[in-house]
Design a protein around this nucleic acid. Structure first.
Lengths: 252, 252
DNA sequence: GTATCCCTTTGATATTTGTCAATGCAACCA
DNA sequence: TGGTTGCATTGACAAATATCAAAGGGATAC
């Protein structure tokens, strides 16, 4: 299966796309976090160059042999898991500075698909070499562990969302999460462009696209956001946050 | 918060409970997997001894300082995340050979609670020392990464379950997963004792306890299982598996 | 040994979300 | 620039699950 070799070979590593970690404005969000200049330059040598992807292209597919993890340099990705019986679950959306592909370590093969939702760029980080270097640079090793652990904690947050929240709470949590991540990257926390469709949001949130659309409309009616297609402006951040409280706080 | 110091101090490390990895019948399921005899004995020296917990006791709580990960030697645990607004999500159930506590690496503090669901025993694995040793023993380092990655993949499976499955599908998947894990440990895949309540199952599966109970009853009516309280016997494993197919296979 | 408490089961009803269907909007391609 | 196509919105209705309520069963503690 996944013998889609041609399609996978098209977006080759782009020579000359290499940007040193030490020069990268994402380094504080990314793998080099906390490294000394010297250690960072050792990491530079390991990064296998970059790769550009057009919107819609796969960075990897479930079943692909695992060789590298990836750092998003620019753009926007989704990851999703597809089962034999046709279920499709979006497991995350990744933006600049975030690490993709750690699911592949356990079985030496990727277990999900990663797709660019807009034209994007990633850095390739060959994993065998990363392990070798991280056994020499303790802070790199520890930071790698933190990145993996953070992914586990993030996943727990998604479980919480899927397991305990209602449709509007899920969407509110989703928008606040995006807002916070855009903000951390120097973009407006209040106004942004959604790269994904209602269906992809729905898949991530465990909802049908119509439910997502209705929740957007309702938020707009209530003056919490202003939304037109993929353009979102959050008008009332505290109001959105208040939606996440109710479980027993529904006294009023 | 979580100033429950007394309660946490009670279950001290039990001296003399130490069992060498090399002597442990769980080693093929656990962290020592794939190590040479020599490397395993180095790991032995690092394991900080064991700890016994009575049913209901916490192994750690959200907010506790992170120092070790834990390997379940015997017994059964649940982990759950509690939010300020009162939501409670069970994120997993852990049995012998499984590793607990990796959520704590990212922030140096545990982010969830781990509770023994029956009298249990764990091995303490001090994380700083594990990192030191794993930078010397490549296969240990790599296996640690695999264990963390496996946790990420497992979490994706739970997301799939919560995001795409209906109540009975979730319970079927849950039972089959338990069955498979018991089987891997030499227990019957068909007959076992649930250590958790309907409410805990419900929390894990994103359902209310009544819905879980009704699904159990329905499986029994249909001759898929036989269930009385916490005792479960799976009568028709293929039948349960068939429940997981339908998304478009509902042609018949 | 017995009483208590928690867990489980089951029923009736309410709420939420999904499904089906139609229409509208926007971007993209020719 | 006009048509086509995919995405989004909205409505009416159906299905799934939650909620509320009551009663039974087991395990545990005293």
């Amino acid at each position: 299966m996944h013998a889609n070799v041609k399609q996978n070979v098209v977006p080759l590593i782009t020579p000359g796309l290499k940007v040193a970690c030490s020069q990268c404005n994402l380094r504080e969000l990314c793998l080099p976090f906390g490294l000394s200049d010297n250690d960072m330059s050792r990491l530079d040598h390991l990064i296998g160059g970059g790769r550009k992807l057009k919107r819609g292209q796969h960075l990897y597919r479930a079943g692909d042999r695992f060789e590298s993890i990836f750092a998003v340099r620019a753009g926007f990705f989704k990851t999703d898991v597809l089962t034999e019986d046709g279920r499709d679950q979006v497991t995350g959306f990744q933006m600049a500075g975030e690490i993709l592909g750690m699911d592949g370590i356990s079985t030496e093969a990727h277990t999900c698909n990663a797709v660019a939702l807009e034209d994007s760029e990633v850095c390739l980080i060959p994993f065998v070499e990363l392990e070798m270097l991280s056994s020499e640079i303790h802070s790199l090793q520890h930071h790698l562990h933190k990145v993996m652990s953070r992914e586990i904690v993030r996943d727990h947050g998604v479980m919480m969302l899927l397991g305990t929240m209602r449709a509007e709470e899920r969407l509110a949590a989703f928008l606040l999460n995006l807002s916070q991540r855009f903000s951390a990257r120097g973009y407006s926390p209040a106004e942004f462009h959604l790269r994904m469709t209602r269906e992809e949001i729905g898949s991530y949130l465990g909802l049908k696209l119509e439910t997502v659309s209705r929740a957007f409309s309702r938020f707009q009616e209530e003056g919490l956001i202003s939304v037109q297609q993929k353009h979102v402006r959050i008008v009332d951040i505290p109001g959105l946050k208040a939606l996440l409280a109710p479980p027993d706080g529904r006294i009023g």
